[in-house]
């Protein structure tokens, strides 16, 4: 796999949110407006990149039997640093994201990439993988947040869109004056986006045999040495 494909796969083909279905909790919870989505995307990106680099650097030192506790300590450390820096220097963005930044520690994307990629690859490859995944996460968050904010509250980045403001659909997850956020809208928009991505991906689907065990996310837990062959659709 060349370096550009390492970088690009995280954006669409292995998008962590829309294809791998990782990190769905913050995705649904904070994407009621685009500003929150941007804040979360940047925070997660910093943690993802830093933790991937650190774990890749230490991959030969960390014994296999304590790898998960080590990864979690490293990830938690970076999350706490991001949290402290955000609270100190970007308090306005920090306030709505306070709870969700802490939850980045248990975000499946971070630990998943650490375990599946950074622990097995070089620092540069791990960095590129993290950047690709971070961009993919950001794309998914911003796409969801844009739909929910534009059609849910008739605004974008806090700026009102004149016509849409009068015809908004609050249940899509916008924040009405009483501060209520509807979870239904998050799930609904998420489902639509997954369906669209699945449709795009189904046209490009490769037979399993071409995928190979190396690129399979289940490789570590699967006992098979090769996948069963299947005709491409």
């Amino acid at each position: 796999m060349n370096r550009s494909s390492v970088l690009l796969k995280g954006i669409i083909k292995e998008n962590p949110v829309l294809v791998l279905l990782l990190g769905t909790c913050p995705t649904i919870a904070i994407t009621y407006n685009v500003m929150n989505a941007l804040g979360m995307a940047v925070s997660a990106a910093i943690v993802l990149i830093c933790s991937n680099i650190a774990i890749s650097l230490l991959r030969k030192l960390i014994p296999a039997n304590v790898r998960i506790p080590c990864y979690i300590v490293i990830i938690a450390g970076f999350v706490t640093i991001v949290q402290m820096l955000c609270e100190a220097y970007f308090p306005a963005i920090y306030k709505p994201l306070e709870l969700f930044i802490s939850l980045i520690v248990v975000n499946c994307i971070i630990l998943g990439r650490a375990e599946m990629y950074a622990s097995k690859n070089s620092v540069l490859d791990s960095f590129l993988d993290a950047v690709g995944m971070a961009i993919g996460f950001a794309v998914a968050l911003i796409a969801m947040a844009s739909i929910r904010e534009i059609f849910g509250s008739g605004s974008f980045l806090g700026f009102e869109i004149p016509i849409l403001k009068d015809y908004n659909i609050p249940i899509l997850g916008a924040v009405p004056p009483n501060g209520k956020v509807y979870g239904f809208g998050g799930f609904f928009v998420f489902a639509i986006l997954i369906a669209i991505v699945n449709k795009i991906m189904s046209k490009k689907k490769k037979p399993k045999a071409e995928f190979g065990c190396e690129g399979c996310p289940m490789a570590d837990s699967c006992n098979k040495t090769e996948c069963e062959k299947e005709e491409a659709e």
Binding site: L58, L61, I62, P63, V66, P69, C70, V73, I74, A76, G77, T80, I81, M84, L85, E87, A88, Y89
Partner: peptide, 22 residues
């Protein structure tokens, strides 16, 4: 030893950042 060292390094980093941001 490895886990302890990682914990120590992370703790030191956090205390350094905390001293600046607190």
């Amino acid at each position: 030893i490895v886990l302890t060292c990682i914990c120590l390094v992370v703790a030191l980093s956090l205390s350094l950042v905390n001293s600046i941001t607190a």
